[in-house]
Design a protein around this nucleic acid. Sequence first.
DNA 1: GAACTTGCTGAATTG
DNA 2: CAGCAAGTTC
Length: 818
Amino acid sequence: MTEFLSQLNPQQREAVTIGDGPLLILAGAGSGKTRVIAHRIAYLIAERGVWPRNILAVTFTNKAAEEMRKRVTRLIEGLEIGSAPLIATFHGLCVRILRRDIETLNAGYTRSFTIYDQDDTVRLTRNSIRDLGMDDKQLTPRSVQSTISAAKNRGEDAESFAARAHFIDERRASIARVFQLYEERLHKNNALDFDDLLIKTVRLLRDVPEVRERYNDRFRYLLVDEYQDTNQLQFGLIRLLTEKQQNICVVGDPDQSIYRWRGADITNILKFEEHFPSAKVIRLEENYRSTQNILDLASGVIKHNIERKEKALWTQNPAGEKIRYYQALDAESESRFVAGKIQEHLRSEPELRAAVLYRTNSQSRVFEEAMRRAGLAYNIVGGFSFYERMEVRDIIAYLKLAMNPHDSIALQRVINTPPRGIGKMTLDEIDNRTRELGISHWDAISDLIADERRLSARAIAALANFQRIVNQLALKVEEILSTNPGGASPEEESESRIESASPVSDLVKAAILDTGYENALKSENSDEAEGRLENLQELVNAAVDYDEQGAEGLRDFIDHSALVADTDQYKADVPVTLMTAHSAKGLEFPLVFLVGLEDGLFPHSRSLSDASDIEEERRLAYVAMTRAERFLYVTHAVKRRVYGEELASEPSQFLNEMPLELIEDVSRGRSWLSFARGSHTLKGEAGSGRYEDDNQYSEAGNEFTIEGKSNKPGGSKYTGKTYDSVESVEEFFRRRTAQMGSPRSTPKSQGRSASPKPDPRSPSPLSFGPGSYVRHSKYGRGLVLRREGSGEQTKVTVNFPGYGAKKLIEKYAGLEKD
DNA sequence: GAACTTGCTGAATTG
DNA sequence: CAGCAAGTTC
């Protein structure tokens, strides 16, 4: 059984076989990270006699968990083992623990709590804002919810948030009030949001020693994947779970930390050895995935991060093809290029799998269309997943309601879906009642029906109808619950019961039929309704998987629908996969297209103002590039529609950070790259000197510690020219203007690119067009990159050497012509 | 009360 | 260009 060790290199083998105690595996991209975890699990079971149920492996995504499960199963196939190791996502693990033990927390939650997903929490936030008499236009539910979530992730509760908010500003104080009401209502509804899943679990383990003890005994070996992305709460969870045994093995790569915005704390991995003093550290630095060229390209980019420790990732793979670069006119032509290239590759290698990686989900649509036109089978990961479809969520809401009619969010969602004559007036009345008596919406309905005076007979009838529907469904749930006690001992089960072979899917069917949902769709008679019906059929199919678990299965099924956010299980045999760079983490493809490499898109505009945000973007680009095994294409478009408006877009700075000698230009006509090359030789700098590091860091060895944020560079870190550098931008504009003048340049569309929208209305004397120099009192001399808006709101983006690009309101910036 | 129309504002990444 | 909310009409 040790034969599987022979497939590993010495470092991997050590990581797999090393004994108990804390272990940190620093695994570069493509170094066989998942493989090592899977092997370690198998090794623990097969060679060290660890009981599988004592092993817990935690991942971030369902996809990763799935993959891990598959690999482990393959490795331990044929062994006589009674149980399987638990491989789950953080959230999945928490649900599991809470479903069992939350009541011991004595905080008023019951084991049948509901999970609110993003959609639910935003609704709840909106309700809270309104009920506090605030304006949900000034305080948009979405942004308030994300502020709340960020606070919860920092470990702040409503009270401490409020205490601090007081000193900040009015807006913050308002959010604090919403926060409080939001929490109150979650609690009243016996509901937990995603953050609560972690928070409550940590609290449970912290406050209830018996429970902590039990899980410490149960999970004697804990393995964590993508450790660089853990946040404070997850760290807390890990520490509590390993308190006793200290058998904690984490795997991660600081260069692939891309979830800071979600509270991920990179110091978790950087300080692992401080947190677990007896920790051993193993580095995996040989890359098995990519060609030398791809690796060099990715390294060339990630090198520009300052908050980083140099790492020696290497490969024995051949240099391979050059990286191909394409400059497209717009998003459509970009997608056409990609589809065309995929076809070309498939012609010579029909088995090749391709991935198209973009920064934002909204980019997917164009590619989807291009694939369809090209007749390429594709699938999309992320974006609107199956479980986010309206009709699917409606049916789930009915099921939730059947299990817990006091779930007000679910109730509000479906009380009049399909339309059954419960209108605004009636709903308002229910709301009033709810508030007056401090009861749930469900109770308010009974109350109003009994009252008779407050509503018209017609409204009362409609409410009674709704009540009947939910009750009927609840009754079915109860029936099945009593006849199919999932999880009960087998003997008990075998006697007297008319067991349904398909309890869960039957309930889903009932929720579709008995609520009038199906009829409403059928009578619509449209293609859209047709599609929805198909989706619901699909939902029933999905439920079948849970039938064998009996009644417990319904709970699991509903949990699953909340926790499976990405369209998991992208079929590996489909030739093309479209997804965000984030979703691609952990995957690999022979052929990769990294698209939309434009300033403001990738790196995303929201990150431009903050240096460490840019660094995270760069890591994201690094993740994307290192997904490629053999062929990598990088593309960008010259213009793109944003908000339905066509805007000129500049090449991403990341393009300029790529070692240009590795790149082959396959654009039609002159491109940014030919410009970049031209300027390069013009300056007569030696190719190798271009990205020279004056590195204070690369020599410092392989300590994966951050060199402190104090890295105030006297200048920028490298001496080469970046896209941002004043000279290169200047040259770029010169080139562009020259190009535009030439009669052979592409007709009409190109005229807009150099200066987006010269506004005819405000020929202000203070207008600084792109390409001109300005002087700022604080930042000094800079070059105008872009100009947008008009009149009072004219904003200019100016690049100041040493400070980076700043967006300024022209009117207030006090700029002078230089 | 429901269906339709207009008008407005606002998208990053995920479990 | 969306998705949503308020306004309008039947």
